[in-house]
């Protein structure tokens, strides 16, 4: 069994990000994806395996070919992952501002 991969480690690699961009516009086979890169085919296969394991890519069988397409839900998770952290600071700073406005008017 393969270990579950960290999504953020997966997208830290520039080739894997390029693959995601490529597949985002249309479903492609492993061969078609590999033809866009100078890297060796097994290296591209390894990247596809990692992206599939962390569910950023999904496979779909079409006849004898396997097509890769992006998983929109998982992609959105990455886009949103910073939002709770931003909210946490936004809440704190809103509080800071309210406290100091009160402080200012008391003086």
């Amino acid at each position: 069994m393969n270990l579950r991969r960290d999504v953020f480690q997966a997208i830290a690699d520039p080739t894997r990000r390029a693959i995601l961009l490529l597949v985002a516009s249309q479903s492609l086979t492993a061969g078609a994806i590999a033809s866009n890169f100078d890297t060796a085919r097994p290296t591209v296969s390894k990247h596809l395996q990692i992206l599939t394991e962390c569910e950023l890519l999904e496979q779909k069988q079409n006849g004898r070919e396997i097509y890769y397409h992006t998983n929109a839900k998982k992609m959105k998770e990455i886009a949103d992952f910073i939002e709770p952290f931003r909210n946490m600071w936004d809440d704190r700073f809103n509080k800071l501002e309210a406290i100091m406005k009160n402080y200012q008017s008391k003086k």
Partner: peptide, 12 residues
Amino acid sequence: FDLPLELLFKAC
């Protein structure tokens, strides 16, 4: 912030 610099610094 809608606060003067001195108050922001004090808050921190």
